[in-house]
Design a protein around this nucleic acid. Sequence first.
DNA 1: TAGATTGTTAATCGATTAACAATC
DNA 2: TAGATTGTTAATCGATTAACAATC
Lengths: 218, 218
Amino acid sequence: MKQEKISEAVVRRLPVYLRFLNELSLSDVQTVSSQDLGEKLDLNPAQIRKDLAYFGEFGRKGVGYNVAYLIEKIRHILKLDKTLNVALVGTGNLGRALCNYNMYTKDNMKIVAVFDADAGKTGTKINQMTVQPMSELSETVDRLGIAIGIITVPAIEAQNVADRFVAAGIKGILNFAPSVLKVPAGVRIHYADFTAELLSLAYYMDYEKRKEQGDVEE
Amino acid sequence: MKQEKISEAVVRRLPVYLRFLNELSLSDVQTVSSQDLGEKLDLNPAQIRKDLAYFGEFGRKGVGYNVAYLIEKIRHILKLDKTLNVALVGTGNLGRALCNYNMYTKDNMKIVAVFDADAGKTGTKINQMTVQPMSELSETVDRLGIAIGIITVPAIEAQNVADRFVAAGIKGILNFAPSVLKVPAGVRIHYADFTAELLSLAYYMDYEKRKEQGDVEE
DNA sequence: TAGATTGTTAATCGATTAACAATC
DNA sequence: TAGATTGTTAATCGATTAACAATC
């Protein structure tokens, strides 16, 4: 079955919908309208309906969306109904923090292997996993069927780690290092670049002040 | 001086430019063209020129941009030429990792106060800072002139922390919790939502596979 | 039935890209 | 001067929003 090309913006919103639906589900809410969702998530209701309609007809006219059913559908779209194994490289503060996060299991994503280039770190334990040397990356990726790699090394080493991931056959990378990476077609890179978010916040700090003073056009 | 309204997408790219320019500067590169920048950052050269031109004429025709000069200009635009003080709430693994990050000083952003609602955590030290109770938030924000707040608490508590930040007069918030927050106009929220990035990666894992099989339109 | 809300088309809005005159 | 590259306008592209028929 051929499928229409779906924009990145749409796909990025699906996890946001899913999270809020999970909250509703915990509060025993049965049904939700695009209006409700839009108010809570600060999105246009038409956009939410359109996003969901790319993947099927999940709602009922005059009623809304069944929460449990929509959760199931979105989980299926995002392929969260089967477990994805994840490898992480870089056991600094951030890397260790991510390894100790437990929400992966909830979303069927699990960090199952940890690596570090520093021989002083290999052999130590993080959340029941033994830190492995980079030389074992390929073999471990194969053996555990790892699909996704997370990079939490300094910016200068990030490209090198990405290359190693690609060589090992990994097709999806989440990069926490503040650097733009080059990967071949067919490999997908997402960025978790909070330093950029923080620096752009600074711009708006000043901007809000100027707006109060009437120095900016609305 | 009135200023044209600049889109968020433009502002979000400035830190990316700045970072790469800093790298060039370290390698003693004097001059760079929009063409060069575009190749390294995977962006259209026309877009880069247009982005920069919103803020002034920083380049020289036939030559390109002077690296040191452009760094200075972007730092000024982002208001990184004066130090911004930051408060962080939530001293779990992620919060502690961020407190130990040292790049804030480089960018003139510094976490100067840390808070936790858990009385068991207050009084402990993180990177030379004493973890304070939430009751001291307002007073500390005033005293240290804190402009930005970082939220690293569980999703369920994030809105409450945001409300406290707003009450204390903070105008910029970076939220690491996977939840959409409500703040009054004039307060700016940025999201550092790596769980959403990770979940949307899952979608594309499958997508790349389907593309190889010719099941998706390009 | 009357009211509500979806799915979808058409209209709008905004962001990206191409093209090129200006000029170093 | 010839070649290169900016700043900027116009064209294109894509995403968001409004509107409404279908229907629960």
